[in-house]
Amino acid sequence: MEKQKDFYQRLSESGVSRRDFMKFCTALTATMGLSAAWVPKVAEVFAAPKQRPPVVWLHFAECTGCSEAVLRTMYPWIDTLVLDIISLEYHETVMAAAGQQAEDTLHAAVKKYNGKFICVVEGAVATKYNGAYGKIGGRTFLEVANDVCKKAAATIAIGACATYGGIQKASPNPGGYKGVGDAIGIKTVNIAGCPPNPINFIGTVVNYLLLGKLPELDSYGRPLFAYGKTVHDQCPRRSHFENGEFVTEFGSKEAKMGYCLYEMGCKGPSTYNNCPTAKFNDGTSFPIEAGHPCIGCSEPDFWDKMSPFFESA
C-alpha cells in the first residue's frame, strides 16, 4: 500500500528531495514563529513512515460551515483525506466518540503528539468575562485554545471566525470575540472566507505533505497562492466595469447581460481571494457568476467593514 511506503520515497516520487523537504520544514518552523531548534521536530511530524500526520480540529464559536465546506472536497475526496492522508484525531462533528470518550480522545491525542500535530481551528474565541460565552466540557474556548494550540506544531485557522473573529466579532461584540491568533497570541496560517473554498485549505495541507512547500503568506496570514489577487482583478465581468456597464437592479436586462455588479455593492475590488478562478463545489460557480455581489468575506472584519453588502462604497 502506498501509505506504507517510506515517506521520503513518496516525497521523491513527487519530485521532492530530502533537502527540499528540510528546507520546507525550516520555512514552516520560521513561519510559525518558532525557533530553529524546532525544525527537527517539525520534520519528524511529516517524515515518520507509516504514520499519517495527526490533525486535531477544534470547534469554537462557529456554524460548522467550514467543516461542511471541507467535506465537499473532490481532489482528493474527503474519505481519502481522512482515511489515507491525514489522521483526524479529534473533530467533534464527525468523530464517533461523544462526551467523556471524546474529551479523553482529545487529551490523549494532544499528549501523544505533543508539539507534533497540526491544529485546525474553526470558530472565534470569546475573551470577555474570562471567556464565559463559550465552554466545552466545562473549559472555556480560551482555555482549550491556550492548552491545545500552543502544543501544536502549527495552527491553521479556517474561516472568517477563527481567522479574524467573524460575525461574533461584529459590532457590538458583547462576548469580546477574537480570531484564535489574536485571542491567545500565536501566529496562524489563515484560510480566510465564509466559508473558504476547501481547495485553499486542502491546497495548504497537501502542499505540506506532498510537495514540501509551505505557501507564502500575506500580511494577514493568508496563503498568497489563493489570496494574492483581488476578486476584481480576476473577475470575468471586469470588461463591463472598464466599459462602465453596470447592473442597477437584480433580474434586470443588465443583470441578464452579466454586467458589472459594482453598483450593487460588489466588494470584489477590495477583496483578496481566488473565487473567480478556483470557483466553488468542483468549479461549479461563485457568487458573481450567480449574479450576486461579492461581500468581501475573506477580508478581516468584513461584517463591519464591507456592509451594507448591497450598497457601493
Binding site: G65, A69, C194, G251, S285, P287, A290, G291, H292
Partner: peptide, 25 residues
C-alpha cells in the same frame, strides 16, 4: 446542486430580498 443556482455550498449566495440573483443560470 446548490452551487448551480446558488454560487456555492455551504452558504449559498444568490438570494436577495425580493428574489434571486441567478437569472443568468
Amino acid at each position: 446542486m446548490h452551487a448551480v443556482f446558488g454560487a456555492k455550498n455551504p452558504h449559498l449566495q444568490s438570494l436577495a430580498i425580493g428574489g434571486v440573483t441567478c437569472v443568468r443560470d
